[in-house]
Write a protein that binds this DNA or RNA. Structure first.
Lengths: 249, 249
DNA sequence: CGAATATCGGCAGATACGTGCAGTATCAAG
DNA sequence: CTTGATACTGCACGTATCTGCCGATATTCG
């Protein structure tokens, strides 16, 4: 039994049963669990399955994507959300981006705070249902990968609003490249939101630092504040030099 | 049964039934209640559900509210939703209203159908995340009681779209008063949607028949079709005389 | 109020995990 | 053929996670 052959077999089992148990495979193939665990680790690194305690589950792209994003550094994202929510004061008008970190912001917002939240994410809007804050939904074509409105209609609606603060989520935070995201349409909307807000606050969970995605949203020195958690001081020094306020949640 | 698998299952159950009882799950899976409670605690910390004494409920109050309303004639509403979903054909552009019956329509829509769904409800938009259909979200001020966009911005966005069919939900269906709803702003939006659609299909669960709410949306003979379930023939005879097509789901 | 039930924290046993190490097989170069 | 490099596997050990049980509290309901 060749190594590759064995890994193929694991994937086949996973596809058939919807799950793989490390112990079962090792018994079936008369190999140590260590070997199987190594296979699973490898396959998980290749994104072919999702590793869980005891075995593995399928990595069904579409469903897993959103879920996986929510599971990366949940504690840090929650902390960032809380810190950002505390920055919203009574009477303010704020833009809240889509994305998992922004969702934590919405959840952490004081339920009795009288403010106006403008968002292009139906998920964020739904999360604010039991808050006192006024919610303005930006419409447009729905980009399902991220569940946000994009397109000309969304940009036009944004241009008619002036906000105090824009809480922006990005997928890459790089000291020389700047702030980036993976979709061109989304980048366009983010730029429109920045242009309509007096101040931009970037919400950056640790895995984003040092990363760069295809589409640049803002130059490194453009936003006013960077909220992060669990990041090394060295990664942030460059931004501090550029005059950004760094908030460690 | 892997741990992660079990948590997925809890979430699935929650989505299906709208609630989860710790004891039931532990019995069903032959595990101690402690383990299930730990799962529920964990999932609640991730914001995926709301912990309550004895089990758990869906995460946001908005969803819960909708579900509570959804408990009035759920089977009939589901049947109406299915019947209405079957009326949408490939390539069409349709308006889908907010409300629980419309939510069933969205859920019942063929996941692979290539159509365009225009909606002013973030809840409906979210329900269509894993459908092939293009989704256009109508933005505006969010009216939280019903979780729909209202106001001038919403009306303006609607006026720029021409749809084949508008699937309308109402709170009152009365043979002489017409079709009514409980909120003036919502009524305004419904009228705008009707004006922009070639055809209007009313989704009427049985408790609406014979009822009238404060704000009139349409005259008794204005819509083209009335989809209902579990209603007495006598209640519908008047509408049939006015030329409406009656669909019994 | 009191009984029934649910919840939480801590504990312990079982299991799973990751890493370092050693033995073996394979292969290419000398 | 020998040697060295590399990859793969199994084992050992310390750590992390999961699960059931227990006791103390909290909540619900008659």
């Amino acid at each position: 039994m060749l190594t590759e052959e064995r890994r193929q077999r694991i994937l086949t089992t996973l596809a058939r049963d919807g799950r793989v148990v490390a112990k079962d495979v090792s018994t079936e193939l008369s190999l140590s669990e260590d070997t199987i665990r190594r296979d699973l680790r490898q396959l998980a690194a290749e994104g072919l399955l999702q590793r869980v305690h005891g075995g593995a589950l399928p990595a069904s792209r579409a469903v897993r994507d959103l879920q996986a994003r929510g599971e990366i550094f949940p504690a840090e994202k929650q902390a960032i959300g809380r810190a950002a929510a505390a920055m919203v004061t009574r009477g303010q008008v704020v833009f809240v981006d889509g994305g998992t970190t922004a969702l934590w912001l919405a959840r952490a917002l004081d339920k009795s705070l009288a403010a106006t939240v403008v968002t292009h994410s139906p998920v964020i809007a739904a999360a604010l249902a039991d808050h006192a804050a006024e919610v303005i939904l930006i419409g447009g074509r729905l980009y399902k990968h991220s569940m946000v409105s994009v397109g000309a209609a969304a940009a036009a609606a944004i241009s008619q609003i002036r906000a105090d603060t824009y809480f922006m989520g990005v997928t890459g935070v790089h000291a020389s490249v700047g702030f980036t995201t993976g979709d061109a349409e989304e980048a366009q909307i983010k730029r429109a939101l920045m242009a309509s807000a007096a101040e931009t606050v970037v919400l950056a969970s640790p895995e984003k630092l040092g990363a760069a995605s295809p589409f640049v949203v803002a130059a490194p020195g453009e936003p006013s504040t960077l909220v992060t958690a669990g990041a090394a001081a060295a990664d942030l020094a460059d931004f501090e030099r550029l005059g950004l306020t760094i908030v460690r949640a």
